[in-house]
């Protein structure tokens, strides 16, 4: 237990970096994900095809491979903004198709009659999307989106293997120093992760119940 207490500053620093990675990659992935999802449902065939190919390719690439590319291969292209930024870029790219899919499944979940009604009262594509479909879709999309962010929280641990000092990196370093208290150290790190993931999961559950009542 004392190994945990005396290394608490390290864990807190790691926790801060994990949160920073989560925030940066989360916002970045949200932006790219919205663009990709919009392309995926747009009337322009070439955009649809591009978004589909992008989603399928990135979704089927292992995260370790993406981060390996960012951390060790991108610097060869004279692109060296530091490992933290590189890991954030990798996590952003990896998470964006999952966000796009969550958004698309939300739009797909709106009953077709809603769109037909919007169209039949004469709203245009943009109007029916922004006044009728999206307000309903956003509600349905929040629980799966939160689930994507929970997965992202756990995924930030992979960045710890690629020279970023976040929670997993802290765990590795401290276990190297204090091999006698491995269990306590790892449980402490697990606790920090659960502090993020379990509240997010509870929020997702609450929102889901609310939406279920609304419909």
């Amino acid at each position: 237990m004392d190994a945990v207490i005396e290394n608490l500053p390290k864990f807190l620093e790691g926790f801060g970096n994990t949160l920073a990675l989560l925030g940066l990659a989360g916002v970045g992935a949200l932006v790219i994900g919205i663009v990709v999802a919009a392309m995926r449902i747009s009337p322009v065939p070439s955009f649809r095809a591009f978004a589909t190919v992008y989603t399928e390719l990135v979704r089927n690439t292992p995260l370790t491979l993406v981060l390996f590319f960012c951390a060790t291969l991108l610097p060869y292209l004279q692109f060296q903004p530091g490992y933290f930024t590189l890991a954030a870029i990798g996590l952003t790219v990896y998470t964006s198709p999952f966000i796009a899919e969550a958004l698309r499944s939300g739009v797909n979940g709106v009953p077709v009659g809603q769109a037909e009604a919007a169209r039949s009262v004469g709203l245009t594509f943009g109007q029916s999307l922004s006044f009728v479909i999206m307000p309903q879709a956003i509600r349905m999309v929040i629980p799966p989106l939160i689930n994507v962010f929970i997965a992202l929280t756990k995924n930030t641990s992979v960045a710890g293997a690629f020279f970023v000092f976040e929670l997993f990196g802290a765990a590795r370093q401290v276990t190297n120093d204090r091999g006698d208290e491995v269990i306590a150290i790892l449980l402490a790190v697990a606790f920090f992760y659960l502090v993020i993931t379990i509240p997010l999961g509870l929020i997702a559950g609450k929102v889901e119940q609310r939406v279920a009542v609304l419909r």
């Binding site: 590795r172 697990a190 992760y193």
Partner: peptide, 19 residues
């Protein structure tokens, strides 16, 4: 179940490997 689902797989791997 809740505990396992909230933990990164990588941390579990390290845990099992070390412990």
């Amino acid at each position: 179940l809740e505990f396992v689902r909230g933990m990164p797989v990588l941390l579990m791997m390290l845990f099992i490997l070390l412990v």
